[in-house]
Each structure stands twice: as structure tokens, then as C-alpha cells.
Design a protein around this nucleic acid. Structure first.
Lengths: 153, 153
DNA sequence: TCTTGATGTTGACACCGATCACATAACCCG
DNA sequence: CGGGTTATGTGATCGGTGTCAACATCAAGA
């Protein structure tokens, strides 16, 4: 089920994903999902948790600049996953402990590369904001890669 | 109708707003809304355009630091409006000319206060990202105001 | 063998966005 | 004043969604 959801997430456009759609793709009735997940949020949270793990390891060890660029590149390459993980699709990420833990781990990696807690927050804010703006088309950039290289020093 | 929608936006939690809900609040049938707006997106776009105007004038003339802090404060004080204006609720902002113009005006104000186009983008990205992270609870801050003052120098 | 639990199903409910055919009210022009 | 056009509203309906209750199946374990 999570695999099917993943495929839809990568195929679909805006990261919004319907429980019934996932069930249909899994060749199963919609209500069957409720045997395994409390509700739609729980399904999405489980999905996000899987990706947080991958994302955290991909970032680990890189420089602050490298992490920042990777963050934005990930958002542009995998909009669905990014929107799920870092967007408002999960109403309250804090409500899902595994997810909160994964998020904290990723931020810890960032903090380790920064020279101070405030600098880590600024760096996160910068790449988070640029990723969203680029994804939403608010920043019209013909060559996004060049822009990333220029803006993340 | 727009006024009712505004009230719902400020009262509601996550900025998501249903056309039927607005119509109900206006004491009118849901279909009546389609006499005045092409679809739900058009209603939201009109709503956002009104707020963009206010927002732009509120920002005009301030320093880059002042604008940045005001941006984040606005997001925290009026989550619904902020999410509507700067979030993914409007699938394609570019499709609504008035909205695109208002957005461009706001960014022009920012650019005027920045020392270079890249610096303007970085500043926007930073406050945009911090606003979203604070709003989503990703950054647990007991004293948000102090954090803003510290992070936006 | 009988019971229990996990897993699935069908059917239903309420809500949503959207569109249709139809009614009414307001308005302008002769 | 009257008649016709337009603006604005209504209900019914369609396909979609998340969610729930009631029922079916089927693989162990006692």
C-alpha cells in the first residue's frame, strides 16, 4: 500500500493524494486501508517517515552549502514527496512521533554543519523558503540550477 | 461574499476554505457563487488580491529588516490569509492576472530595499521559509518574537 | 473442532466542487 | 406604463472524497 502511494506521489502533480486512489491502485477496497492505518493522516505520516529516513542519510556528512543545495534539488526533483514531508498536507506533524523523530534527526544533521543554532535555523529557513517559492512558480527562473548555485553560497 | 470568506479565513485553522461554506455563511445557495466567480479558485484569487494590496502598502517604505520581520509577523498573526496568499492553495497564481500583478508589486517593494536582485531573493526565501516553518510548528519557539528579532538582523 | 483475530468486503453517510434546467427579480427602453 | 432582456438566485444531480458500521472470509491455536 505504501509502495503504491509512493508511486502516485511521484507520478501525480501537486502531492495531494487520496486514500481511495491509493486503495484503488493497490487493487483493494477503500475501507481496507483502515485495517492498517487509523486514518488518511496516519497513512501519509507513515509514508513521510520512510522518506525522511532516506532524506536524512542523503544529507548526512555534507557541508552546509551542500545540504542546502540538496534540499532545494530534492524539492524540485520530487515535488510530491517534498510537499508531503515539508508541506501542510500533514496537519500536525508533531502528532506522529516517528515523524517528529525523523524530522529532528534531519535537523540535527543540519545543526552539526552550522556554526551556531541560529545559523542553522537561518539556513533551514532560506532553503525551505526558496524551495517552496521555486516549486510554486513564484520565482520565475529559466535556469533553476544556476540560481541555486548562485543563491546558496 | 468576500467578507464572509475573509471571516472564515481568519477564524478557521489551516486556511482551507470551502466554497459551500462561504455560500452558507453568506446565507445563499452554493450555486449562487458561480454567478460571480468562475470557480472556487477565482473566489480565492479575488480574496487574495484584496489582501495583497493591503500587504504591499504595509510593507512599502520599510527597511529590508523591517519588511522581513513584518512578513513573518503577518504569517503568525493571520495564518489563514498568509497560507492563502503564499501557500499552494491557489494552484496557479500566474493564471490570475490581478493576483500576479499584486504579487509582483510586493516583490518590487522588497527589491527596492535590497542591494541586489539576488539579495532580494535570498531575503524573500529566508522570511518565507521561516514563516512556514514557524507556522507548521517545525521550529518550536517559546518566544517567537524574540526569535524573529534574532534571526532577521 | 471451535474459536479468535486479522483482513477484507459492501453499503451508507456527509461533505465537497461543479453543472444543469429552471425561477424570479431588477432594470432599461419604447 | 408595459414588455423584454439581463442579473441573480434556486433545486436536483454527478462524480469525488474521508469515514463508519455491519458482514464475510480465512489462517492459525487451544
Amino acid at each position: 500500500m505504501l509502495d503504491r502511494a509512493d508511486a502516485l506521489l511521484d507520478a501525480g502533480g501537486d502531492g495531494a493524494i487520496s486514500l481511495r486512489e491509493v486503495a484503488r491502485a493497490a487493487g483493494v477496497s477503500a475501507t481496507a486501508a483502515y485495517r492498517h492505518f487509523a486514518d488518511k493522516e496516519a497513512l501519509l505520516a507513515a509514508l513521510a517517515a520512510r522518506h525522511y529516513a532516506d532524506f536524512g542519510t542523503a544529507l548526512a556528512g555534507a557541508s552546509l552549502t551542500g545540504m542546502g543545495r540538496a534540499y532545494i534539488r530534492f524539492a524540485l526533483a520530487r515535488p510530491g514527496r517534498f510537499r508531503l514531508m515539508f508541506g501542510p498536507l500533514l496537519a500536525r506533524a508533531a502528532a506522529h512521533p516517528e515523524l517528529a523523530a525523523a524530522s529532528r534527526a534531519a535537523f540535527a544533521a543540519l545543526s552539526a554543519a552550522a556554526s551556531s543554532p541560529d545559523e542553522a535555523l537561518r539556513a533551514w529557513g532560506l532553503v525551505h523558503g526558496l524551495a517552496h517559492l521555486l516549486l510554486d512558480g513564484a520565482i520565475p527562473a529559466p535556469d533553476q540550477e544556476a540560481l541555486i548555485a548562485r543563491l546558496i553560497p
